[in-house]
Design a protein around this nucleic acid. Sequence first.
DNA 1: CAGTTAGAGTTCCGTAAGGGAACCCCAACT
DNA 2: AGTTGGGGTTCCCTTACGGAACTCTAACTG
Lengths: 150, 150
Amino acid sequence: MQRTNFGELVCSIARTLDVIGEPWSPLILRDVWVGMRRFDELQADLKISRKVLTERLQHLVGHGVLERRPYDNRPRYEYHLTEKGTELVDLLMVMKGWGDKWLAGEAGPPVLYRHHACGEIADVDLHCTHCDKPMHANDVDILPGPAAMW
Amino acid sequence: MQRTNFGELVCSIARTLDVIGEPWSPLILRDVWVGMRRFDELQADLKISRKVLTERLQHLVGHGVLERRPYDNRPRYEYHLTEKGTELVDLLMVMKGWGDKWLAGEAGPPVLYRHHACGEIADVDLHCTHCDKPMHANDVDILPGPAAMW
DNA sequence: CAGTTAGAGTTCCGTAAGGGAACCCCAACT
DNA sequence: AGTTGGGGTTCCCTTACGGAACTCTAACTG
């Protein structure tokens, strides 16, 4: 095998990368999220090779992130986010925030999020699932878990 | 050029991928985060090709995510997270959470986070920077920003 | 002071994966 | 019967990864 298989590693980060770590996969997810559902539509938007797009879609469907469903009597298919895939979008939202802050420059963010709950333009921040306070890289100790030994 | 360059796209997700989207980069970041700072240490832990490790480290340093600093009179160097890099770890924490939930299976999570603020084992969740309430894929409208047209 | 050690890469080669264009299949339309 | 459109395959070329061997430099070692 040439490309190392991250799925085997005992590490949730590596395993997640096994699902969406390949080139283009996050961008495909983004497009499906914002409503692009068809092969040609994705291909035209991303200008990705059709071969690679086929591979990525199969991979994402195989991992239960996307669902391939027919939308016509003819052999036509659309790709939709599953619940698993929808939760992966968290990752994209964090990427968007980081990219806006560190890479966007003068021009500012390409897109904005408006939060339904408050109606305001906002970004995401990481909070603790236990106490609800902010939680970032330097706010945690890392301990071995049940499936320890990474 | 063979591999498409995501940095040119007007999209903060694509730009972020240009910085840490290549294979191994997130895992290198993870290792540096948890205290592995030297070339041979990273190489031994990840079992990555030395050639690729060199390329990735240079790329990450070039983008200001890592800093390469000498630690001896001899030509010896350590890699440290910059502030920019530390904030990128948010991404890893979200990946960890998703991988724990969807991929860890019976064995449970390989590692746990203990939050300094509350002392409890916890994970991260996404909240709105404006109203502090939870904010996920289906809780937002996506609007064109100042640098619109993705 | 010649020889070894250790860290941090560099070089080289074989294989696999991405890019791109052309081609194919099937079920409507015209 | 011929065209159109969605959704892929096939093929070839080039770049990038994997892995092992090699290099360079500045200490230590006896």
